[in-house]
Design a protein around this nucleic acid. Structure first.
Lengths: 333, 333
DNA sequence: TTGGAGTGAGAAAACGTTTGCTCAATGTGA
DNA sequence: TCACATTGAGCAAACGTTTTCTCACTCCAA
């Protein structure tokens, strides 16, 4: 239907009240399960409302100064690699509470971010979830003095904020421990640039498990780096490892591919574990990657429920909440 | 700040009016550039408003029955592979018009879809964009008799709807023609399941260019199928091709990887072109994939502008609009 | 002067809910 | 019978804008 200006008029509570033979006030209270009235009256109103397909106008409702049943999700993750699972979790947690989510992708553009945030505030969102593609980088906009609650997910917030991130330390520990349990004697860690906080955390956890034989190789977050690292390890002087813990799945894929090209069998000769559990990469690798899943969907759920709780006036202690990761077993390690 | 119930009261138009020494009516008109008044009055009101940081309450505005400055984007593409560029385009086109976008991911769940759509309607969205991960599958919900305009993007809509899709025919033609121009004499097409409309379209376009020597191999949309197809072509009886047009980038990656493993050089021995231009796959392939980009961002922009035009009451002729694809040259072909 | 056109601006209604206040009817104890 | 508590339900205000009327005033021609 391309015709504009449809004039299907919605049924208002006024119509429901008239049809049920009560006042709008009573109708409102009946539908919201508030106030006092005969159970019979309440039921009748509800029935009439259902029959007429009545749905309250959220604008009018929101105008009363209460909730708007909307929240904003701010992200600078253009790829959507991290944002989408997060978004799915938020949405999942909130949809049956009637809350819809504004998704705003700002790409490190402070001006654009401000435009988006202002638009969200104009729309009276009940709260904002700030997210990002990198845990240790803040969004290019200050959200600390807003009139609505803000929750940070997978990105760094101010000290007194509520922040949800994945427990990379635990996830990494489990991954490395898994390699140890599998019988790997010499486990190296091939990971991303040293400047990333997550690289530090994952590296520390790795070090904590393997002890003084720890060997960390930093590079880019790319398949190419995975290849190169394998070349260095196998063409160098020392004995090559029998276990590799990679900083992300792309590196892991590069590593696995490089090993196959060298006729090193995965996982028989070398076990490889990735990080992120990015389905599209992990599943396409031959053999498919065992990888650490950050449970971003769950993270999103928690963040959504929390921002809603704040919006409803509940107290939430500030601080960083780390949600456990989960090792997803496939065949590479 | 985790403390709930902030009470930073927003400045209302009433405050602006008072501060400027005019009535709310005049203030409203001054800010909206409507009505008649001295340029001096208008300017003064605007200045006061800016100084007070006044931003109109979208709820109150929306209640008047005009626009809510929100639209909904419905998608069943959980991966976000297609939705995110689309979303970016929609958002980009609409943000400076003050429109925010509700993103609703429904996963082929009709009940969930209904919940989302109802929530959108409650919020008085100005319009809805329906999108999907597959062009020839409809969303599991009927949007044809809604009270708001609906535009379909990258998914099939009813006959009398406005639909935006990419011109796969043109994109495929250009891709195959490119291979021809490069000097390929025998070009085969390795693509996805026959049941997909896009497979048909791309196949037809391929056939139109190469003529009777056309050879189409159907399989899954996976790297594994790319590998297998190469095995069949090279281990079979006939002469292997010197050009391969793939139905998507994952297949293309599988093909390129398989060729490398056979010491067939890409692009010297065989040129390979993919489809989708999925950065993460195309760029990581060795050599990087030349691929057809569907310009989803542009598609999103158009869809956004169109749904807005409809919301503003403008006439838009129904029908399918095909937006051109673009061949992105890298090194595989 | 008077009448009419044009100009600038304000009063108030309207949008669709929720909710504080009020009130009639009923029940209860003295 | 009277005072009073309780119950069920309605009136009307409130939310923050936009917009339709209405009106006072000025200017100009008759």
């Amino acid at each position: 239907m391309a015709e504009p200006a449809k004039t299907i008029e919605r049924t208002r509570i006024y119509d429901v009240a008239a049809a049920a033979g009560v006042s709008v006030a009573t109708a409102s209270r009946a539908l919201n399960d508030t106030g006092r009235m005969t159970e019979e009256t309440r039921e009748r109103v509800k029935q009439v409302a259902a029959q007429l397909g009545f749905r309250p106008n959220a604008m009018a409702r929101g105008l009363l100064g209460k909730r708007s049943f909307t929240i904003g999700l701010l992200t600078n993750d253009t790829y959507g690699r991290f944002t989408l699972p997060l978004m799915a979790g938020v949405s999942e947690a909130l949809v049956d509470r009637g809350v819809s989510v504004f998704l705003c992708t700002i790409e490190d553009d402070a001006a654009l971010a401000k435009v988006h945030v202002d638009a969200l505030l104009d729309k009276q969102v009940d709260g904002i979830i700030a997210s990002g593609r990198r845990v240790d980088r803040r969004l290019p906009v200050d959200l600390s003095n807003l009139s609505v609650p803000v929750v940070y997910a997978f990105t760094e917030g101010p000290d007194d904020s509520v922040t949800f991130i994945s427990d990379d330390e635990q996830g990494s520990r489990e991954a490395v421990q898994w390699l140890v349990n599998r019988g790997c004697r010499r486990i190296v860690h091939i990971t991303g640039p040293e400047s990333f906080a997550s690289v530090q955390v994952r590296g520390q956890a790795y070090r904590a498990v393997v002890g003084e034989q720890a060997e960390i190789h930093h590079g880019l977050w790319s398949e190419a780096w995975g290849h190169e690292a394998v070349a260095r390890l196998w063409d160098g002087a020392g004995t090559p490892p029998d276990g590799i813990f990679c900083g992300n799945d792309q590196i892991a894929r590069g590593v696995v591919d490089a090993l196959r090209e060298r006729d090193v069998t995965v996982p028989d000769d070398v076990s490889v574990v990735g990080f992120d559990n990015w389905e599209i990469v992990a599943a396409a690798t031959r053999p498919p990657l065992t990888s650490v899943d950050m449970n971003l969907r769950e993270l999103g759920r928690e963040a959504g429920l929390t921002v809603l709780a704040l919006a409803e006036g509940k107290e939430v202690a500030p601080g960083i909440r780390r949600l456990p990761c989960q090792l997803v077993l496939r065949q590479s390690g």
